[in-house]
């Protein structure tokens, strides 16, 4: 019991005093996961929308594949990305293994199918005649797609939340491709794993709390955006 209480007290100390190392780790986590989510947003929403709006042979198979991708195990992604950027791998010349770039790539691969799957479902969920109605009002195809995306804003923001939530809490791929290098590629989750292993529960708890607070703030902001209503 003492261990936990001591740990929590120390954790708050670290947070309140803005411990430079903890702050650095937090900032890096935000940068990497934020960038990865941003990238996944572009790829996921555009491919998801394209699949939703077009009819083609094998569409169901594609949707099944995307939905499977939503549950992609991070360690598998980690393994895959590591092999690709390994010194003798096909992208070895880039020399990005154990860098934040590799982590962004891995996290984007994890988040993209999540964003894609949810955007696909949300665009499909709009009334089928809506796009005809928009086209009939004189919209170009691009304008029509943009309006549909705006109409699906609510579930699309849910997609962003799910994507970001998935990567900020992910540890397997980050540790494999990032290497948990102090001050360079160490993020909240990888640091928590390491500190727990070393028995430094106080730091681990502090990192865990920060991770939770961070996830809460980001989601609260997005929820605010999502639930904004027009006056009745």
């Amino acid at each position: 019991m003492d261990l936990i209480v001591q740990g929590i007290i120390k954790a708050f100390e670290l947070i309140v005093t803005f411990d430079p190392e903890v702050l650095g780790i937090t900032w890096l986590s935000l940068k990497i996961s934020g960038t990865a989510t941003f990238i996944s947003l572009f790829i996921g929403v555009s491919i998801g929308t394209a699949v939703a709006l077009n009819n083609f042979y094998g569409k169901r198979l594609v949707i099944s594949l995307i939905n499977t991708g939503m549950g992609l195990p991070p360690v598998v992604v980690g393994l895959f990305v590591t092999m690709l950027i390994w010194r003798s791998g096909p992208f070895g010349f880039l020399e990005i293994l154990y860098t934040p770039y590799a982590m962004i790539i891995a996290q984007a691969i994890i988040a993209t199918p999540i964003v894609m799957g949810i955007s696909l479902a949300s665009i499909q969920n709009l009334p089928p005649n809506l796009r005809l109605q928009i086209l009939s009002l004189g919209a170009s195809r691009l304008q029509m797609v943009w309006i549909l995306i705006k109409e699906a804003k609510l579930p699309l923001l849910a997609a962003v939340m799910a994507g970001f939530g998935g990567v900020i809490s992910e540890v397997g791929a980050s540790i494999m491709v990032g290497g948990n290098i102090k001050g360079y590629s160490r993020v909240l989750t990888t640091a928590t794993v390491m500190e727990t292993g070393k028995g430094n529960f106080d730091i681990a708890i502090a990192l865990g709390i920060i991770l939770l607070i961070l996830a809460f703030i980001i989601n609260a902001l997005l929820t605010q955006l999502q639930q904004r209503h027009y006056p009745r």
């Binding site: 009334p127 005649n129 009939s136 009002l137 004189g138 170009s140 705006k150």
Partner: peptide, 29 residues
């Protein structure tokens, strides 16, 4: 398409104000 207007069975309004909805076709023009 610019000379024809279609009204479907369902109202198919966008999630914005009534003004914005009615203005939609004019904005495209």
């Amino acid at each position: 398409r610019r000379n024809v207007s279609v009204v479907f069975q369902e109202p198919l309004l966008l999630n914005s104000s009534v003004f914005e909805n009615v203005a939609l076709g004019l904005k495209f023009r």
